[in-house]
Design a protein around this nucleic acid. Structure first.
Lengths: 230, 230
DNA sequence: CTATAATATTTCAAATTTATGACAATAGGG
DNA sequence: CCCTATTGTCATAAATTTGAAATATTATAG
């Protein structure tokens, strides 16, 4: 899950460190030395995550975060704040503004990366390579295997991605269009109804372990994976 | 759903085809035969989406797109590019310029409409997805579920929208006409009395958790959701 | 208390949505 | 190059939802 990460940090040394860190973690850094500079960069491309220093020249990180969260174009981009002191006050304000997490300086590269990963996972759960388990159904992206007890569920590529997406976003209803976007890809051109067929195939495969009811039809809306039987 | 779409295409035959297509899909086309012509039209009214040919006389589609995206008045209007060749280079440049999607010629009407629909959906500000709770009755648009304690309230599509609307505007009386407008949609032609039937169905479903009295009749006016039992 | 207007219920056929099975086109793997 | 798995579409069946009409109740003015 490589991501584009915008680093907003005015101190050159720290920025360099952060960028290095991000690169080594497999992501791509974008650098800005101020809120204004960041705004400019955001006009061209939106990152997947923003690493924002609490203290910045001119517009403070807090104010910038607030602004980001109030603009519909950027509001869904997760923000991790870099704070100097660990005072309770700061933490509260960070979260108040809508930051998704914060890291107190000084911090270890390890900690930073862990938080980045955590936040990204929260945003795009199906992108990670972590194994997922729901109701005894185990899906492992690394081995590309789905198992229940000792039964192996045999899935085609598309059904696997579909199930992976469902398991990464459980309980939530997904319209056919959304599924096409997320599972098939943005620029594919496929009939909405085709989703039905793949749902059928997925349920069929899952029936071997009795998990076919996990995938529920929500009439008029789409489909959902849910452990709630009702 | 119906949108005004500006078609910028210099070849008359193709433009005619596009306009026809757009009309049949329920949208309204505006036609321009060049970037200059388009600019003129834009002075009068801004469309919801722009369909732009990559190759145009004088100012190319690419340059025009760049200009549109740099002007604050038009920058948020989504653009779909019509490209001739399918070379990777073109795709990249399309997206670089800020186009929201592209279609490579030749394309099927079906594909074009699908893309228009997808782009409009991505842009359209989606209705609030916040969960609502009233008197222990929980409605969650994201999972499209209604629960009370651990009981699941099973609702059809219309009943769900109806309850959603009621819970979003509690304690207020809504006439049957208002409900038809807000829940069914502006242009539908449905008997006022039909609302009664759906109210019945909603109450019926809610009775499973004892919430049937939330929906109250206001004789002569309409219905209201209220926590006041009186 | 009665007539009458307004709302509640029930029922049903039409309309809409989904499920399913079959099939042709494609992509890969031997 | 042949064979098999995978995919996307269709046609058709099945299931659910919807709107309207008919009938039953209830509230209220007089």
């Amino acid at each position: 899950m490589p991501a584009n990460i915008l680093v907003v940090e005015d101190e050159p040394a720290l920025q360099e460190l952060l960028a290095l860190n991000i690169t080594q973690a497999g992501h791509t850094p974008m650098r800005a030395i101020s809120a204004e500079h960041a705004q400019e960069l955001l006009r061209n491309a939106l990152p997947d995550l923003i690493l924002l220093d609490w203290m910045l020249p001119k517009m403070s990180g807090i104010d910038f975060a607030r602004q980001l969260k109030s603009d519909s174009a950027t509001k869904q981009i997760p923000i991790i704040m870099l704070t100097a002191r660990g005072g309770e006050f700061d933490k509260v304000r960070c979260l108040e503004v809508g930051a998704d997490d914060y890291v107190t300086k000084p911090f270890s590269p390890k900690e930073l990366n862990a938080r980045i990963k955590a936040v990204l996972r929260r945003i795009a759960p199906q992108m990670t390579d972590d194994p997922i388990e729901i109701q005894g159904l185990h899906l492992d992206p690394v081995t590309r295997r789905v198992k229940s007890n000792n039964k192996v569920v045999d899935l085609g590529p598309t059904e696997f991605r579909l199930l992976h997406y469902f398991m990464g976003n459980p309980e939530r209803v997904h319209s056919r269009s959304q599924l096409l976007d997320k599972v098939w890809g943005h620029h594919v051109f496929v009939e909405d109804r085709t989703v039905d067929v793949h749902i059928r195939r997925l349920r069929n495969a899952l029936s071997i372990s009795g998990h076919q009811d996990l995938i529920q039809t929500v009439r008029g809306s789409g489909y959902r994976l849910s452990v709630i039987t009702a």
